[in-house]
Design a protein around this nucleic acid. Structure first.
Lengths: 180, 180
DNA sequence: GCCGGTGATGTCAGTCACTGGCATCGTGGG
DNA sequence: CCCACGATGCCAGTGACTGACATCACCGGC
């Protein structure tokens, strides 16, 4: 990350990154599928956090045959554990780098899409209707991203879960109006 | 597209694409920013379709100081004009290619993100609160993608606007429940 | 009819991300 | 002591993408 901050994404070669880590370029590519991927470590554990929380909620609510939205809401809380307060500063720096290069935005969108797909599958596996599952999962990811963006905004002090709750409330407010 | 169908994305070089069009590789890169971009032509006009419809609705509803959701709903109708029935078969083929290579998914997500950003800006410019604008735009794009996917599914015969209406209705149904 | 400008294209050389194949080396188990 | 085996290094190759410059068609002004 410090290399990217100093020279920009395109101003740093993979060989330099590898050298800074005391490794070879070839070895870099054994750990990361491509150059961009180096800024998205631990994505699998990130998704697992969502799944664990969703599972716990589902176990509790078994009798209710839970509606998808409450399942997703629970999953959001689990995902936010991946970003405790200690990582807020780090997340800000990382985000500043991501915004310097459209390729990073692309990759992040792919990660969010992967998360949405994972959540969709999890909901379907728990008996939610496929279209409802997809909509609920995509909406949940949108809420997460919106809340995360606010969380790393300058001057923001509320915790990620608090912001998630507020975003979710606003979304409900927006859509409460019945269709004509 | 026929080259990709026959040899796969990685089995075709840019030089081959250019040659098939009677051009040079260098000239290819003067028209397309990169190799993937060749499957996303006319994206600007696509976004303009949304904006025009949104504008028309806004002009009509001026007195109502329209709620964001009805503005976005109108925009969706405009966007669907970019995909008339004649392009359904073409869209299916294109989509089959897109699904063969994760890089294409990445690029498509970037395009959808760009659309969401454009809609968000348009809503803000028309006086919608920033967070509400972002949520409404993102949700609108999600509805569009869901409907589009259904539209190109095998055996589907309803038009894109019809499917959009149904998806929107289902989303309202999902979120009608008030929060606890 | 000539002339200079302008935009599109070709040519060439170079950089760098990424890959396959093979050698090397440290570690831990038999 | 030896022998997998996993991690790393080394090397050569491919192809996407870029910058610089030449060429060429076309077009308005004179």
């Amino acid at each position: 990350m410090s290399l990217f901050v100093e020279h920009g994404f395109e101003g740093v070669t993979v060989a330099q990154i590898a050298a800074a880590a005391g490794l070879t370029e070839r070895t870099f590519f054994r750990y990361f599928a491509d150059k961009r991927e180096v800024l998205f470590p631990g994505h699998d554990e990130f998704e697992q956090g969502f799944l664990r929380a969703l599972d716990k909620e589902h176990a509790l609510d078994k009798e209710a045959d839970g509606d998808p939205i409450s399942l997703v809401t629970a999953a959001l809380a689990g995902g936010s554990e991946f970003f405790p307060e200690e990582r807020r500063a780090w997340s800000r720096t990382r985000n500043a780098i991501l915004r310097t290069h459209p390729g990073f935005l692309e990759r992040e969108l792919l990660k969010m899409s992967s998360l949405a797909a994972t959540l969709t599958r999890a909901l379907r596996d728990r008996g939610v209707d496929p279209i409802a599952a997809a909509l609920a999962a995509e909406t949940g990811v949108t809420v997460f991203r919106t809340a995360f963006t606010a969380w790393i905004a300058e001057g923001e002090t509320r915790t990620l879960p608090e912001i998630q709750d507020e975003v979710l409330a606003r979304l409900h407010g927006l859509l409460d109006t019945r269709q004509p």
